[in-house]
Amino acid sequence: MALLKRDFIPVSKQQNMKPLHYPDCIHLSERCGCDLLSISECKGESCSFCQSAAQQELSQREWLSILNTLGLEQQKKIAGKYYSGKMPWKSQQKKG
C-alpha cells in the first residue's frame, strides 16, 4: 500500500477541517491538483503518472544506467534528436 499524504482543507467557516487523503505523489499541488497534468483534482493512486520521490529517483538512476551503457554512436544519435546534441546523462553520472 502506498504512503498517503494527509491534508486538511476548510469545507466552510462553520465546519471543522475535513481530512483528505492523497497518494504520496511528487506532482501533487498545494491545491490538491496535479502539477504535471492539466487537471484540477488529483486522480489518486489510479493515475498513471502518480510517482513518489523514491520512484522518481529509481527511474532517474535507471535512465542514467541505460543511456550510459549504449555505444557512443547511439548516444550521439539520442543526444542530437532529443537534447540538442548535449548528453545530460554524462554530467548526471559525475554528480551521482
Score class of each variant (00 low, 15 high):
Lys43Ile: 14
Gln56Leu: 14
Thr69Val: 00
Gln75Pro: 09
Trp63Asp: 00
Asn68Arg: 09
Gln55Asp: 06
Lys76Leu: 14
Ser38Ile: 01
Leu64Ala: 01
Ala54Tyr: 01
Gln74Cys: 13
Ile39Met: 05
Cys50Asp: 02
Ala54Lys: 07
Glu73Phe: 08
Gln55Phe: 00
Ser52Asn: 01
Gln74Pro: 01
Leu70Ser: 03
Gly71Cys: 04
Leu37Glu: 13
Trp63Lys: 07
Thr69Glu: 12
Lys77Glu: 15
Asp35Arg: 15
Leu37Trp: 05
Leu67Lys: 06
Gln56Arg: 12
Lys43Asp: 13
Gln55Cys: 01
Glu57Arg: 13
Gln60Ser: 14
Asn68Gln: 10
Arg61Lys: 15
Ala53Thr: 01
Glu41Ser: 08
Cys47Gly: 05
Ser52Cys: 04
Gly71Lys: 14
Leu58Ala: 12
Asp35Trp: 11
Cys47Thr: 08
Phe49His: 10
Leu36Met: 10
Ile39Gln: 02
Ser52Val: 02
Lys76Asn: 15
Cys47Arg: 00
Glu73Lys: 11
Leu72Arg: 12
Ala53Ile: 00
Ser65Phe: 13
Lys77Ser: 08
Leu70Thr: 10
Trp63Arg: 12
Glu57Asn: 12
Ile39Ala: 02
Leu64Gly: 05
Leu58Gly: 06
Glu45Asp: 10
Cys47Trp: 06
Ser46Ile: 15
Leu67Trp: 09
Gly44His: 06
Phe49Pro: 00
Leu67Gln: 03
Lys77Thr: 10
Leu58Met: 12
Trp63Ser: 04
Ser46Gln: 11
Gln56His: 11
Ser38Asp: 09
Glu41Tyr: 01
Leu64Asn: 08
Leu72Val: 14
Gln55Leu: 06
Gln74His: 15
Lys43Thr: 13
Glu57Thr: 10
Ala53Tyr: 00
Gly44Gln: 05
Ser65Ile: 02
Leu70Cys: 13
Asn68Ser: 13
Cys50Thr: 07
Ser65Val: 03
Cys50Gly: 00
Ile66Trp: 11
Glu45Pro: 00
Ser65His: 13
Leu67His: 07
Gln56Pro: 00
Ser48Ile: 09
Lys43His: 11
Ser59Phe: 15
Leu36Gly: 06
Asn68Glu: 09
Leu64Lys: 06
Gln55Ser: 10
Leu67Asp: 02
Leu72Trp: 06
Arg61Pro: 01
Cys42His: 02
Lys77Gly: 06
Arg61Leu: 13
Thr69Leu: 06
Glu57Tyr: 14
Arg61Glu: 00
Ala54Asn: 02
Gln51His: 00
Cys47Lys: 03
Cys42Pro: 01
Leu67Asn: 05
Leu64Met: 09
Gln75Cys: 11
Glu45Val: 15
Glu73Val: 08
Ala54His: 01
Ser48Lys: 09
Cys50Arg: 07
Ile39Trp: 04
Lys43Arg: 14
Ser38Ala: 04
Gln75Tyr: 12
Gln75Trp: 08
Leu64Gln: 07
Gln56Phe: 05
Cys42Tyr: 08
